[in-house]
Design a protein around this nucleic acid. Sequence first.
DNA 1: AAAATATTTAAACTAATTATAAATATTAAG
DNA 2: CTTAATATTTATAATTAGTTTAAATATTTT
Lengths: 142, 142
Amino acid sequence: MSKIEEKCKEKGVRLTDQRKIIAKVISDSKQTFGSKDHPDVDELHKRATLIDKKISIATVYRTIKLFEESGILIRHDFKEGKSRYEPTTEEHHNHLIDINSGEIVEFVDKEVEELQNKIAQKLGYKLVDHKLELYGSKIKKN
Amino acid sequence: MSKIEEKCKEKGVRLTDQRKIIAKVISDSKQTFGSKDHPDVDELHKRATLIDKKISIATVYRTIKLFEESGILIRHDFKEGKSRYEPTTEEHHNHLIDINSGEIVEFVDKEVEELQNKIAQKLGYKLVDHKLELYGSKIKKN
DNA sequence: AAAATATTTAAACTAATTATAAATATTAAG
DNA sequence: CTTAATATTTATAATTAGTTTAAATATTTT
């Protein structure tokens, strides 16, 4: 059973066949593609239909939304228009997006996290969510 | 003449009546509403029609795009779906979005800027663009 | 002032996403 | 277990933000 399936049980989300498939697809994205993945809805649908060719795009959208609301996965709206998804990880991380290839590099930086909290507090706010995205191009070594 | 009109001249963007109106609306957004504003296209259109009720939404979209490409204004894609706009400022700044009211607080933090550069470099990238958004709720004082 | 070029308008079109109604599957009650 | 009640899925229609197009208007060039 995938980690996402476990989480569904925890959160009381009923697991239908379709949801199991979508859960597996998302789970696998991290496993087999590594942190470079983060598929969009079309890609999730495409991968899901490899398992069950009858699954509809509407179900993918609905399930993704359900999973997001249950904190099972995270949606990202990078600068490209389409949303991209990844399973929720224990540790919060940020993203660097390669502007040439679209590849994603994940990183964690404690300093940044602390700084963000400090800033919010100074402005009189309680930090609820935050987004740090770096866009860059690869430095070639010689 | 508004600052944005001046910039258009600099960049060689021809100023039609409609563009002048839209330029004024954006200029005024910072002036009269302060940093809390950042209107979306609908709001820009609404304000523009107060000056000329014949101006079409397509022109607003086209002009906004033109202004953005000329570096005259900045588009933001916060978590709400619609893009919101502000005139380009000399100094780069970040945004804290009030999740309850949609209000925006702008802030500058040198430490954050430096940190971002350092992180990108460490990952082997040249930082081209970056986005830091904090989402928070107001702390009530007692 | 006429010809060439650019912009605007209104309306049609896209792409991503959401809602709806009928069909199918799941759960609960007898 | 078998029917009624509830939830989910499918296919399709609707919606929303944004873009494109063709005809009308305006601006610039000659």
